[in-house]
Design a binder for these strands. Structure first.
Length: 150
DNA sequence: GCCAACGTTGGC
DNA sequence: GCCAACGTTGGC
């Protein structure tokens, strides 16, 4: 899952009560579907910092609540307000995630792009803008194996 | 700040 | 349903 650290970083997550926060503001159907249909309690997730000095994977978190309506879409004063999302027929959903740990180092996008093992990951594919994407078990294990290198 | 890539909107 | 215009994302 991607977030701009200036908006919400891994440190912000760690500082939350219970180290838990809802992942609001997703306004992309593919990403929504991922949260709504795939993400289950206990699933582990990489936290990716985007649009910053060193974009890359910075930590691990886990799903602690499965999808429910993203209430920020109903709030006209919220940055992520969407008039087309009705409380009776919500268009957008979110999950709650909890901090697990920070990686010992940031595994940068630049580094990820050099790994043949990861070339099928949406993240490193040209022009990808998905803010939430699946990671296979193999990719997960490989990425974690990078943590102790470099 | 630039701009390529992509999603969404809306006229037809 | 097509597609041009427009807005957003996000790496660089």
């Amino acid at each position: 899952m991607k977030s701009e650290p200036e908006e919400f970083s891994i440190d912000d997550l760690q500082a939350m009560p219970e180290q838990t926060e809802h992942w609001d503001g997703v306004r992309n159907y593919q990403a929504r579907n991922m949260m709504r249909d795939q993400m289950k309690i206990g699933d582990l997730v990489f936290f990716y910092h985007s649009n910053c000095q060193t974009p890359g994977i910075v930590g691990i978190m886990k799903v602690v609540r499965e999808s429910y309506p993203d209430f920020t879409a109903f709030d006209v004063n919220d940055k992520h307000y969407d008039a087309k999302s009705d409380p009776d027929q919500p268009r957008w959903f979110m999950v709650d995630i909890q901090f697990v740990r920070k990686l010992d180092r940031t595994i940068s996008l630049t580094e990820l792009k050099t790994c043949p093992e990861l070339e099928t990951m949406p993240l490193v594919c040209r022009g990808n803008r998905l803010s939430i994407m699946p990671v296979t078990q193999q990719q997960w294990d490989f990425i974690l194996s990078l943590e102790d290198k470099g």
